[in-house]
Design a protein around this nucleic acid. Structure first.
Lengths: 115, 115
DNA sequence: CTAAAGTCTCACGTCAATGTCAGAGTCAAG
DNA sequence: CTTGACTCTGACATTGACGTGAGACTTTAG
């Protein structure tokens, strides 16, 4: 499919998809006239990208992670470690958010306490 | 205390503190010569700002929230609702992060599944 | 009192992920 | 074969929270 269709199906803008390619996260084929051609699997790939972006990962890192996977599930140890590191980072973010939520709870309760 | 000391004690840059004032989140006094003068309480205030920033809140919103509190805990209903709304947003973020972490777990496990 | 350190106010630079616009080629339909 | 819709490649604009440097004033230490 061409870029417009992928944009519609994945819910992201055409510009964003081009940007993903520019950063090497998407690697579409090309028609002889230069049009990008994506596969149905790219819809899921874009969904993954969105999920990881929403979690605060940089494109560079997302690229590395998804590149690891493109190698047909033969995750090298280096890749596993990278994924694990991000998992830890996200767990940290979750903890911090939970503490932040507690702070808001304190504020709602009228307290002026810690962190 | 002056801005350098507050920066040292709160662990943020002098520039950031000036920025916070510019956005109305900090409102320091001034010496006759124009130097900003902060109170010890501002250390905690800055800590709160950092926490909320890390949670993805905009300065504008942080300002409103902290302004609500400056009114000496007489939280107007409007303010409570604002805080509650942010609490909900943060809970949503937490849920999304947890799902993202699950995605990473799937990837680590070798699966190619959904969102 | 002098030099160093700290602070002041502009004001432009930065980074990341897009938005937006320009000018031009391409493709499906009538 | 001509619209009109879609796509292409630049390239500059945007947003938010600062970084960084210039030029000038103030305060502190010796």
């Amino acid at each position: 499919m061409k870029i417009g269709k992928l944009a519609a199906r994945s819910g992201v803008s055409v510009r964003a998809l081009r940007y993903y390619e520019e950063r090497g996260v998407l690697v579409p084929d090309r028609t002889p006239s230069g049009y990008r051609v994506f596969t149905p699997a790219d819809v899921r790939r874009v969904a993954h990208i969105q999920t990881l972006l929403a979690a605060g990962l940089r494109m560079q890192l997302i690229r590395e992670i998804l590149t690891c996977l493109s190698g047909e599930s033969l995750l090298l140890d280096e890749c596993r470690e990278r994924l694990a590191a991000e998992r830890r980072r996200i767990s940290g973010d979750i903890d911090r958010l939970i503490r932040t939520r507690s702070l808001l709870d304190d504020l709602l309760a009228g307290g002026h306490s810690g962190t």
